[in-house]
Write a protein that binds this DNA or RNA. Structure first.
Lengths: 234, 234
DNA sequence: AACAGAAGAGAGCAGTGCTCTTGCTTTCGT
DNA sequence: ACGAAAGCAAGAGCACTGCTCTCTTCTGTT
């Protein structure tokens, strides 16, 4: 059993980090699809084949970047969430939404890597799912908090009985019990947020929205309202 | 001036179509990023350089495919919309939403091409915007119809005065006057729909939603409700 | 029938991911 | 302490990509 970290071990993790960092920089500059393993190797100062000692394939490198990005985003959301009184769910949602957009706008290529079209041959391995769950987990935690606080949502369509089964996957991941109706509304919030960001970052709002920041805040306000997080309802 | 269509002209459009059709087939099979001009040429039965007589670059070919896809989707939505009584905006929205999802699920790669991360070096020229507008136009038409019908939306946050300017782009594209609040809600519907589809098609709902179809219908119902398209409000 | 222009073929350039072989160095077990 | 074993870097090479350039062939028009 040699748990001792040899010099080679240290060099390995260091070089691995160097590669991943340069990859990350390249990602931020040229985007996921244009990521070139050879270009990265060139900049790190080694020949392309040497990189394969550290990442068995370009996809593995992508996976590392994906996980890292998910974690970074998740952490940003958690920090934003924690910076606000825990019992003020409306404020927490606002903070999380703004943090989400701030990170996405600051890292559009990373956003595209996470939530854009999947890279062609690439199929995300299960390694990334926990990191990905960290992001959605923040929203789901808020959903639970809202349920616990007993917030009254805007007029909501009663969930079809079969909807309960349709939501089975999520429910298994949630510690707390949340009503179908509330779950649906929070899933809609989830889709709305990422839809908004995708449309904005991928250029589909270019001709329509003149002030992204302003409009986003309006949307978040409406979201807070629909979820019933403001004291006054209807 | 020879406006007469010579045999060569006819051959040209025919071959152009053949290339585009093969490209379209490949697109449906391997996705946008993996589209290979050489592979297409190979299948059409000519050498790669010959294709450049018809499409000056791979990007031009992509542009053609994008425009085509937008048009196809737009047409599908228009057909679905027209198949329902014009004065029943709720029914029209339901039909459009279901048609949107049906097309997207049937053509995931085309969806990714249109609404996923933009292709690396590629910047969509203005040629595609009218076709793209056709899709969003369907939704905006419904928004106008709803305004005209005087539907009362679910409790809505009053729009900040500055929001009016933020929405300037859209408003310039809309023939009818629609209130800021209603516009915001319909833009949210737009973002929600494409967010939902992106999350679904790009695999982010994989662990959470067991019955996509069922869940989507529930979401659409809630959407109809929030937009105030059902007779009974709150 | 002659000619100009369009179309196709092929070679070639620079780039990609990835594999395999060849040396070299560090580590580990005896 | 030394030899074996494992790890690492480099280079050549394969199959592929988009794209350009040249050369030839073919074809529609006058």
């Amino acid at each position: 059993m040699s748990a001792a970290t040899t010099a080679r071990d240290r060099a390995r993790v260091e070089i691995t980090r160097t590669i991943q960092d340069t990859a990350r920089r390249h990602l931020g500059e040229v985007g996921p699809a244009a990521l070139s393993l050879r270009a990265i190797a060139r900049e790190v100062g080694m020949v392309s084949s040497a990189v394969y000692r550290y990442f068995p394939s370009r996809d593995e490198l992508l996976t590392a970047l994906i996980t890292e990005a998910y974690d970074e985003l998740g952490a940003a959301l958690e920090v934003a969430d924690a910076a606000v009184p825990a019992d003020d769910v409306a404020a927490r949602l606002r903070a999380v939404c703004l943090a989400l957009r701030a990170w996405s706008v600051a890292h559009p290529h990373e956003y595209a890597l996470l939530y854009g079209s999947p890279v062609p041959g690439y199929a995300a391995p299960d390694t990334t799912t926990p990191a990905a769950g960290r992001v959605t987990g923040v929203l789901m935690t808020l959903a639970e908090a809202s349920e616990r606080a007993g917030h009254v949502m805007a007029p909501t369509v009663p969930a079809d009985p079969s909807e309960r089964d349709a939501l089975g996957g999520i429910r298994a991941l949630l510690p707390l019990e949340v009503s179908d109706e509330r779950l649906v509304r929070w899933l809609m919030a989830w889709a709305l947020l990422f839809g908004h960001l995708s449309l904005e970052l991928f250029g589909h709002m270019h001709r329509g929205i003149l002030d992204y920041d302003r409009h986003f805040r309006q949307v978040v306000e409406q979201l807070v309202r629909d979820l019933g997080l403001t004291g006054d309802d209807a």
